[in-house]
């Protein structure tokens, strides 16, 4: 188990955005978090990524209680829904995480090259990242996350607002990440995407996990009434 969340609560003011979340994330799996807008997907991902801390509950990382040390933070990387890009070249964007870890230049060059190759942007190293298209920027963001070789990558709706071609490219990259042994957690409000690439699915509804299970079980035989409604399109997403 790479991550175990026990009885996690998160509040915004007095509003509980996450309610009593219990979740195990298995090493090497692709886990999808589905749910309608406002269900708490991003809040949960931010807690998993250690960008936010829960108000209540315990976060275990690789069996140990999370103290949010720099070493623990460096084992998880998040890719945001809207690609956030440093105002510099593609190369320097991807190199950032390696530099802050003190990776020496030769090794950094090799890893940037590998990451660019993985996302199909080999010839883009010198391009100014902010001039790229939305899909290309998201690929840079993913390459940047992969280059630091985290144990867990968290992607928040990585294909939102992308065209079908770029969606396919990003989904293929997610599969490649898993092949390399990286645990992947991604959120989506597109249940078909979860079905295509995830191994397990978590259905989050109004801040609560209403169903967890493997893809086949969730899509063919959901036990929760809310999940049944979500899959049949009765809930807005």
């Amino acid at each position: 188990m790479i991550v175990r969340l026990e009885r996690i609560w998160k509040y915004f003011g007095s509003f509980p955005a996450l309610k009593d979340i219990n979740l195990d994330i298995r090493e090497g799996e692709i886990l999808s978090i589905i749910g309608s807008s406002g269900a708490g997907k991003t809040t949960l991902l931010r807690i998993i990524s250690m960008l936010d801390m829960p108000d209540k509950g315990v976060y275990y990382l690789k069996g140990k209680e999370n103290t949010y040390s720099i070493e623990q933070r460096r084992s998880v990387t998040m890719v945001f829904q809207k690609p956030v890009i440093f105002n510099t070249s593609v190369y320097k964007n991807i190199e950032f995480g390696l530099k802050v870890r003190g990776v020496e230049n030769g090794e950094a060059r090799k890893r940037v090259k590998e990451a660019l190759s993985m996302v199909g942007l080999e010839d883009y190293a010198k391009r100014r990242a902010k001039t790229l298209s939305g899909g290309e920027q998201q690929r840079v963001a993913i390459a940047r996350a992969v280059a630091v070789k985290p144990e867990l990558i968290v992607l928040d709706e990585p294909t939102a607002n992308l065209d079908p071609q770029n969606i396919k490219v990003i989904e293929d990259i997610i599969k490649k990440m898993a092949e390399q042994g990286i645990t992947v957690v991604f959120s989506t409000h597109n249940m078909f995407q979860a079905k295509r690439i995830a191994e397990r699915v978590v259905h989050l509804h109004e801040g609560k996990i209403v169903e967890v299970g493997n893809v086949k079980k969730i899509f063919e035989n959901p036990s929760s009434e809310v999940t049944k409604k979500f899959l049949s399109g009765e809930l807005f997403y």
Binding site: M50, L51, I70, T77, M78, F80, V84, F86, G97, A145
Partner: peptide
Amino acid sequence: ELALTLGAT
């Protein structure tokens, strides 16, 4: 947040 999630102090 990007810098932090990429491992920056």
